[in-house]
Write a protein that binds this DNA or RNA. Structure first.
Lengths: 217, 217
DNA sequence: CTTTTCCAACCGATCGATCGGTAGCCACCA
DNA sequence: TGGTGGCTACCGATCGATCGGTTGGAAAAG
């Protein structure tokens, strides 16, 4: 309840986490983690390969035994971030029932939890995308669009069925997406909320935004 | 309704605007505009002083006749962005009546319009803050906190008066602030909304988030 | 009024430092 | 043995900033 805005000095207090099972083991994975922390704090261009190597404890030339170029490290992180988002949202959509409100809640919860669980990955995936070439960025953009379409489809369905009172589906989708995205900028261990509390609250916000009669969480 | 997510390739389609009356005239101002465009597209570290100088049409050494260091150019942009936000929000708060809902609407409208009017400035001010030293960043952070407190005070007042149905004021404040902030990432001339339409819609969203009985805009 | 001085803005050249990446070599392990 | 991961040394390019010099306009001096 004190400082909840973006403050890069907090970065060292946020765990450098990557999704399990999809992160490469050994040095390759350690490079990703080091890059994640440095890219999140200083940006792609502000973090040098020497910085990354030093943090991993290897020589900078060794990076090239694992990744063909600096850009590939970033592209990998961005891919991981977007795949985790898409995976969780597809999973949530599949597990939810037919009720549009329930589907929306499931999607929003999934989105928010990706951002609480992997805040640095979300920050890098969202803020450093511009450093990639169009070809490198395309896969991630496609995944992002897929996640977005999941949300829009539910909003459309809910509005058509009369469960949602929505004047403009795309704009409402943007608003709901914005809520989840910004979580990565402020959520952390020094905040007085657990991840579940944040997800509950944000599901409540989303339901309010669509005018669903469900009460706040 | 097509592409509404962050896409750096769209940057050249967004006008490079700085607030009137506070932007220095002549070369100094042209440097700020050039830096604004380049920092927004490539980030502070991704844009060199040679890039900036080239865009202005001067020699890179000349930049140092106007600004003592590269960081100062960024600091100036970030200061301008935060001052405009604070100015507009203070003005909106002063002009609004006593009704908490009316005050909230005024604040949200002001915030959203800063982001529609100066999207690049908002992007740089929000995303490149990390490139500043703590001393350089402090003034902007203070202004940001001031704007935030304006919003929280209204939420608190509305909740206390029973006009708002809010479970958690700081969290609701974050959510409302998030909505406005992200506008700079997607709003532009290729979107099918005017700035007023966006502001109206977002005021409606904010009122819903606080459970105010006012209908959607 | 004319001349001189001053100063801000500007220049090309250059600085030391750092950048991402390469080449060649070595050690280890299956 | 061959492949992988690691190293030192090095490359050309670029970085932010400095240097010494020039220019033009304004102000001061005579």
């Amino acid at each position: 309840m004190t400082q909840t805005s973006w403050d890069p000095r907090r970065l060292t207090a946020v765990a450098v986490e990557l999704p399990e099972g999809v992160t490469p083991p050994g040095t390759r994975g350690r490079i990703l983690r080091a890059a994640l922390r440095l890219f999140a704090e200083y940006g792609f261009h502000g973090a040098s390969i020497r910085d990354i190597a030093r943090e991993v404890g290897i020589n900078s030339a060794t990076l090239y035994a694992h990744y063909p170029a600096k850009e590939h490290v970033l592209a990998e992180l961005i891919r991981l971030g977007h795949e985790e988002l898409r995976r969780r949202m597809v999973e949530a959509a599949g597990a939810a029932g037919d009720d549009p409100a329930e589907q929306l809640a499931a999607l929003v919860r999934a989105q928010v939890l990706v951002h609480t669980d992997y805040p640095l990955l979300a920050l890098v995936a969202n803020h450093e995308l511009h450093a990639l070439s169009p070809e490198s960025a395309a896969p991630a953009l496609a995944l992002r669009e897929e996640a977005r379409q999941l949300l829009l489809a539910v909003l459309e369905r809910g509005a058509t069925a009369g469960a949602f009172d929505v004047a403009d589906v795309p704009l409402t989708g943007i608003a709901i997406g914005s809520l989840g995205m910004r979580v990565a900028n402020w959520f952390g261990p020094d905040q007085p909320y657990t991840r579940e509390q944040v997800a509950d609250a944000f599901v409540g916000f989303a339901l309010r935004l669509v005018g669903s009669p469900l009460p706040r969480g």
